[in-house]
Design a protein around this nucleic acid. Structure first.
Lengths: 217, 217
DNA sequence: CGCGGGGCTGAACAGACGTTTAGCCTGCTG
DNA sequence: CAGCAGGCTAAACGTCTGTTCAGCCCCGCG
């Protein structure tokens, strides 16, 4: 089953094997020998190409960040279409649809974001400013209501979308279906569309104008 | 600076040290020796009390899950109050307010949820059914609109709240303030309240009744 | 043809790892 | 008091880790 790798340089094969293993088990739980074995090469070759395990980690980080950016950029064409039609689910499902559901990039993205890696924060910042710009345009076009706090709105909507990626497994477990499958995504997006179009909560009788988060216990 | 630990049994001291280190660095990156050193005991004692490193991991998992559940349960009193007043931010900020911002439990919860640990999935399931029940009650009381798809609504709102926990650092980086600080949380909750009360998107001119998630590329 | 260089390997290195063992010390019980 | 149990440790175990080194093989250039 190496046929798919025959076209790749050994360096790329190693990088791919490392990406897969890092995504599945975490970099700390994967040895250089395990990567070499998965790539069908000797452990020494891994270090020959990447200098050290840390160098391999950085290379995989850069590569994964690049590929994720490409997927996002592709799906931004979809976002443009959504924007044009004013479809209410907008960026909901955007990231989800961009990734083949079982791609190691999803799992890798999690680690990138949650370990506080610089590459992950950089990506997040880029998406945030895209999201901010998009809501700006939509508000200007009358497709979205103006916000009292545009950055926080953009951040919340982005975070809510990312949550689908990050929490896919627990969500699938409690819902009984995979929210990132084609049908599951449709169902998820439908509800998100309803929420973001009409809201959920009715105003209370007392109508507090400012929410009151609980003090910390 | 061991005074705080003087009241604790060595077993508890070890468990706490492991919790902190696991949360910060991930269990795979932390050696038994490092835990022992942080706890001020010999490495052998760690294994004397917990059998093996895997046993320690399980013990820490159980302990963290318990403590997190306690914090959640405490803040559910807050949820009851919010429910009673119909305050629109309801569960937004609920989890956030429950955790001291720098508690290792936050970081540990991340790992619990994202590594697919059973303890994490169990917790998530519990919160999901709480969330589901709460929206049911609110809808019955006329405080929330009825949903076409209650489980997905509950799941989305839960996931959106968790996103604040999971993405705290990247969010703080892009927003320029910590959304889990007291002031930051207030600002965050205010926007979430606006979104969940009034929605964001206006209906499009064509008014598609059903959203159309993009097919996967 | 000769030969240099880069992809690549097997073997070895020192150190860190999780774990085991033998035994110390302290405090309770008979 | 004797003795035993349990918290606790120092030292060592074999294994695995990341890394290095010397050298093989094959391709392209002079």
């Amino acid at each position: 089953m190496r046929s798919a790798d025959d076209d790749l340089t050994a360096r790329a094969t190693i990088r791919n094997a490392a990406l897969q293993l890092f995504a599945d088990l975490g970099p700390d739980a994967v040895s250089v020998r395990a990567i070499a074995s998965a790539a069908g090469v000797s452990p020494a070759l891994v270090l020959h190409h990447f200098g050290s395990k840390a160098g391999l980690r950085e290379a995989v980080n850069r590569y994964a960040a690049d590929r994720i950016d490409v997927l996002i950029a592709e799906s931004e064409q979809g976002a443009a279409e959504l924007f044009a039609t004013g479809s209410a689910d907008a960026i909901a499902g955007l990231f989800a649809a961009a990734f083949p559901p079982d791609s190691p990039l999803v799992a890798y993205l999690r680690r990138l974001l949650l370990t506080g890696d610089q590459a992950g924060v950089d990506m997040f910042r880029r998406w945030f400013s895209d999201s901010l710009a998009m809501f700006d345009e939509m508000a200007a076009a009358g497709l979205a209501t103006p916000s009292d706090d545009p950055p926080v709105r953009a951040a919340f909507m982005l975070a809510a979308d990312m949550a689908l990626l990050l929490l896919r497994e627990p969500l699938a477990a409690v819902l009984g279906f995979d929210p990132m499958s084609r049908d599951g995504l449709r169902r998820w997006a439908a509800e998100v569309a309803q929420i973001t179009r009409d809201g959920i909560f009715t105003t209370s009788p007392e109508e507090p104008t400012e929410p009151q988060p609980r003090d910390q216990p």
